[in-house]
Simulated assay, not measured.
Amino acid sequence: MTNWSEKVALVTGGRSGIGAAISAKLASLGVTVVTAQRGEDRVHPYVSANFLNPSEPVRVIHDVIKMAGGLDILVNNAGIMREGTVLETSDVDWAETLHVNLTVPFMLIKHALPHLTKRRGSIVNIGSIEGLGSNPRHPAYCASKGGIHALTRAVAVDHGGDGVRCNAIAPGWIDTDLNTAFIESLGDPESFKASLGDIHPVGRTGTPGEIAGLAAWLASDEASFVTGQVWTVDGGRTSKLNLP
Rank of each mutant, 00 (worst) to 15 (best):
E96H: 07
T117Q: 13
L98Q: 11
R119N: 14
H99Q: 10
A95R: 15
R119E: 02
K110R: 15
R119G: 05
S122R: 00
L116M: 12
L116P: 02
W94C: 08
H99R: 07
E88F: 02
H115P: 11
H99W: 08
H115R: 09
L87Q: 15
S122M: 02
H99A: 09
T117M: 04
G121D: 07
L87E: 09
T103P: 04
G121V: 03
E96V: 04
T97V: 15
S122I: 00
P114H: 12
M107F: 03
K118G: 08
L102I: 15
K110D: 11
T117A: 09
E88K: 13
T89W: 02
L113G: 12
N101G: 13
T103W: 08
K118D: 10
M107I: 11
S90M: 11
S90H: 10
I109K: 00
K110P: 14
N125Q: 11
V100Q: 03
K118Q: 14
T89F: 00
N101L: 09
M107L: 13
V100H: 05
L102T: 13
D93P: 07
H111C: 05
E88S: 05
N101C: 06
K118V: 12
E88V: 06
L87R: 09
N101K: 13
H115N: 09
N101T: 12
R120E: 00
I123P: 00
L116H: 00
I123L: 01
T97G: 04
E96K: 05
T103G: 06
H99V: 03
H115C: 04
F106G: 08
P114S: 13
L102C: 11
D91Q: 14
R120Q: 14
T89G: 02
V100W: 04
K110G: 04
V104H: 08
L102K: 03
L98H: 11
L108T: 02
E88A: 15
T97A: 07
L108Q: 00
L116I: 10
A95D: 10
D91A: 06
A112T: 10
E96Y: 03
K118W: 07
T117R: 04
L108N: 01
N125T: 03
A95S: 13
D91I: 12
E88D: 14
H111S: 06
P114F: 09
I123T: 01
L98E: 07
H111V: 08
L87Y: 04
V104E: 08
S90V: 06
P105S: 07
P114D: 14
S122W: 01
V124S: 07
T117I: 12
L87P: 10
T89N: 01
R120W: 02
L108R: 01
E96P: 05
V92I: 12
V104W: 05
I123C: 00
L98T: 11
G121N: 06
L87I: 10
L108H: 01
L98R: 12
N125P: 03
L116F: 01
M107R: 15
R120N: 06
E88H: 07
E96D: 14
V100M: 04
D93E: 14
H115K: 09
D93L: 05
